[in-house]
């Protein structure tokens, strides 16, 4: 395993830092993807490739189109134009649930745990190919009991790994923000995805939990999955990502290893602004969190249907 990872990382060493650079072994490739809201071009990506087996971070200022790109790639939104594929399979017009079944599973910026189901039921829901989910066999428990038991065992393992086993029978609504993030990640793993896409996994997570969350994200890669995540937390990006893609105003403006990207003038212009030459750990944490929360609040309001 470890050899493969270092191999994948090593392969990235030769990749140019140009936006839309070609990767040696891409799991996702996309070209000319555009999406407009009213007059605004939210996403306008000429070319994007995601390397298999590594952790790729997608960063950029608010409104850069990161979440919209997530939505487009996973079939939750339809682009105006563009082609993209996962493992060589074209995904244009493929509905979201099929994308997930193919092995490309996402989480949401505002966690979507099912708060009126218990933690374990949330987990069981994630399992795919359940016989008990078919209408005509659902009514007969004998047809699905054994499969359900197996799924439950797998779910319990994951809950233990994510340290949620204590909460097994609690309603998911009673979990803290960080625990919800963990539950959502664990639930996504029930689908057994090849590519897991995390939308701001650190938002609203208290610092104590952040370290263990980082560890979990790394462990996803270590077991051979590809990770793509959107994040504002630069510590996390620097810490765990193997490759960074920077978006601004809907476009990819830069790519590269974390070190090279953070030194890139285009990135500094687009995103890092005044903070770029201070060590990020020295920036007032409270201030950053406040900013993040304000963003989150604004975005959550956007989502309430008017």
């Amino acid at each position: 395993m470890a050899a493969e990872i270092s191999e994948a990382r090593a392969a990235l060493a030769g990749v140019s830092s140009e936006p839309g650079a070609s990767k040696p072994d891409p799991i996702v490739t996309g070209s000319n993807i555009t999406r407009t809201f009213g007059g605004l071009k939210a996403v306008d990506v000429d070319k994007i490739e995601i390397q298999r087996g590594v952790i790729t971070a997608l960063i950029g200022p608010n409104g850069a189109g990161k979440t919209t790109l997530f939505n487009l790639l996973t079939g939750f939104d339809e682009p105006d134009a563009g082609d993209w594929s996962f493992n060589g399979k074209a995904l244009a017009k493929v509905p979201a649930y099929k994308v997930a079944r193919l092995g490309m599973v996402r989480t949401f910026q505002l966690t979507k745990v099912l708060s009126k189901l218990t933690v374990i039921e949330n987990m069981r829901l994630g399992a795919t190919g359940q016989r008990g989910e078919k209408f005509f066999s659902a009514a007969f428990k004998s047809l699905w009991r054994s499969q359900e038991d197996a799924n439950t065992a797998r779910a319990d393992d994951l809950l233990q790994r994510f340290k949620l086993d204590e909460k097994r029978e609690d309603f998911a609504g009673s979990l803290s923000g960080g625990q919800r993030k963990l539950l959502e990640m664990a639930r996504a793993l029930m689908v057994d995805p090849e590519l897991i896409m995390l939308d701001e996994p650190m938002a609203g997570v208290n610092p104590a939990l952040k370290q263990s969350l980082l560890g979990h994200v790394k462990s996803l890669r270590d077991e051979g999955r590809t990770v793509l995540f959107v994040e504002h937390d630069m510590d996390m990006v620097r810490d765990i990502s193997d490759w960074v893609i920077v978006m601004a105003q809907g476009q990819i403006v830069a790519e590269g290893t974390p070190q090279s990207v953070m030194a890139d003038q285009r990135v500094i212009d687009a995103y890092l602004g005044a903070h770029h030459d201070t060590d990020i750990t020295n920036i007032d944490l409270a201030e950053l969190e406040q900013e993040a929360e304000a963003e989150l609040a604004a975005e959550s309001n956007e989502e309430t249907p008017s």
Binding site: L114, L117, R124, F135, A138, A139
Partner: peptide, 27 residues
Amino acid sequence: ALMRSPWGRVLKSIREDEDAVRSLGKN
């Protein structure tokens, strides 16, 4: 019989948040 089954679980999940259910590969 239906609502204690995984099928019923999917329905209850849809009631709460259909995007979450969709993201887990359910039609």
